[in-house]
Nucleic acid binder design. Sequence first.
RNA 1: GGCCCCGUAGCUCAACUGGAUAGAGUAUCACACUACGAAUGUGACGGUUGCAGGUUCGAAUCUUGCCGGGGUCACCA
Length: 594
Amino acid sequence: MKDLEVRLVQPILTAVKELFNADLNQDQVSFQTTRKEFEGDLTLVVFPFVRFSKKGPEQTAENIGKHLVDNIGFVEKFNVVKGFLNLVISESYWLDTYAKALAADNFGILEATEKDPQIVVEYSSPNTNKPLHLGHVRNNLLGYSVAEIIKASGKRVKKVQIINDRGIHICKSMLAWKLYGDGETPDSTGIKGDHLVGKYYVRFDKEYKKEIAQLLATGMPEEEAKKEAPLLVEAQNMLRAWEAKNTEVVALWQMMNSWVYKGFEATYQQMGVDFDKHYYESETYLLGKKYIESGLEKELFYKKDDGSVWVDLTEEKLDHKLLLRGDGTSVYMTQDIGTAIQRHLDFGFNEMVYTVGNEQDYHFNVLFKILNRLGYTWAKDCYHLSYGMVDLPSGKMKSREGTVVDADDLMQEMISTAKSISEELGKLEGFNEQELNSIYEMIGMGALKYFILKVDPKKRMLFDPSESIDFNGNTGPFIQYTHARICSLQRRASDLKITSSPESKLHLKEKELLKVLLRYPDVIQESAKEYSPAIVANYSYDLVKEYNQFYQQVPIFGTASEQDKAFRIGLSGLVGNVIASAMNLLGITVPERM
RNA sequence: GGCCCCGUAGCUCAACUGGAUAGAGUAUCACACUACGAAUGUGACGGUUGCAGGUUCGAAUCUUGCCGGGGUCACCA
């Protein structure tokens, strides 16, 4: 469609010039796809021209329409409804475009070369003190998928994450394990490493609360009790010992983190996400300091009497923000400044995308402003892909109240639900155990991924575990099912020795389908531009729906002529390829049978 | 309280960035399997796009004010 628009803009500008003697620029030309109830393929909105033509909208549209038909070969005819000029594009245009799509190796996907822009996409970035939960699932799926979509739009992409492997949170787990752990390990207990460490994080909180209660009973004020509780003091000591590189503490830290990494690796693998480079906070947390200090010398920042360093962003309508503590240690912002600069040194990126929840909108707003103030012109090329929280029917997820949905549990539950539904439907006969399991996994994970990715990232969304595996309607399994059916069709066609061919006449239903199909390249570009996998997801559903209608109404192996059969098989095959390709961008695998 | 995001059918989500009669699914009801896979398709029902103004040929979309929901304003990350 974009292709059509590009080819029409100039002729339209010329038409306006010749007919009404007005010079317009191409921004004033706006198209939309013709609504189904009208005849036509592309619609030009003529309202903007009315003031130049000094005629009514209908008359203006008539004039332009006639001019286009007379001058452009592929504009066959037109009709006018109010101020809308509906253009009918010639059949040969559609067939040519279709033939090109069919001949393309990977229709809609652009391969990046060394000359194309380099994009860094950060996502996941977990803490190492507890396992991943539903919120991380949305983060990972979004980040991975956006990276894949940007890649498909013809740019180079590096996927990175920063692992928050140090700090008070991991010390809490370490301390609790040391005190109450009895030497438990993932091997000795059979518990996944991240879950085991998470278990001691919870244990810490429990014991800590007990201590606070005891202190309160002695009459100590609550504020003080929270700070003075022996466990917390000891955890803080541990953090200091870690920073001082105490060998015992560092060894414990390394051991427990290694458990967590192994656990995360399994979760990432199940989710189907991966990374090109990991950054560790333990290695980067000191990086930002020198940049703050040099900024201080240039008087971009200021120092308070207690020695803390601040930036005044009131001119940018933001607040004052702390950059270095009074004791000279760094804060979250300091590290992010350092890491951003480091990444630019590593990759020389043209753009960097941070996939982080919208509770950090303010943080990233400030971060980019500071980078800009430090003189990094690429600060404007940093983008915060901010996504909304995932709600449960029971309300908000709260770790304290135990209403957190664990990522591993969730994925297993989706897969086993896929299994029970499939068994109930009595599908899937003639597969062996291994094949069955692989199909259940594809379906369960497909349902989960699609359910999350079809929603506009910036919107808060509701996740209902019981309703998420709906296999009807706008769902992953519905799309997978259509793909499996198309594969079946192709197998049969091959048995019947029908080869696909683009040579045919376009019947109405085929043309409708073709129009949707040929939008795919534009959809990828738009989705990449908007950082929204939802655009690809919703498009896939449109395509599948259109195909199912086509399938229901148009016989493929029946009474059709040989030529029509060949055409329909070719068309179906391309639909199948586009579905597989689009799902692949979302990290969803499509089975050939299910 | 200041700032930011969100509010669309009973429910879950769309709407090509200002365009035609706001669309899908789900739920409810009614149809269609001797069929290329019914995990499907067709139809009915369902709306003052939170409310009230403004901008213009035209507003769910831009703007102002209210109402409701969430987030954020840490020497936490």
